[in-house]
Amino acid sequence: MDVEYVARLARIGLTSEENALFQKQLGQVLRYIDKLKEADISGVESSAHAVPMFNVLREDEPRPGLTVEEALSNAPRQANNLFIVPKVVE
């Protein structure tokens, strides 16, 4: 695994020490995890879902949610009721 590359994908900034440490530790974990390759999975239908249920639905009825104040109550930065972040360049 290229820890630095994957960390970028996950948007996690790592120091060079962390990089080196994780490269080693995750390398060990991956080697352990590789034992799954020995499992015989031929003919197994994997179910992505833990419960045998279907069509759990919600009727299309609007209901009140958070007030604007509640929604913004934890905003690290806000202005004019908008959540503010550093400018996003397309």
Binding site: R58, E61, P62, R63, G65, L66, V68, A71, L72, N80, N81, L82, F83
Partner: peptide, 17 residues
Amino acid sequence: CGCAVEFGAGPNEHTCP
């Protein structure tokens, strides 16, 4: 979620967790 879909509402008036 059950938040209303409404065009032109004030910012962040229709949100929930």
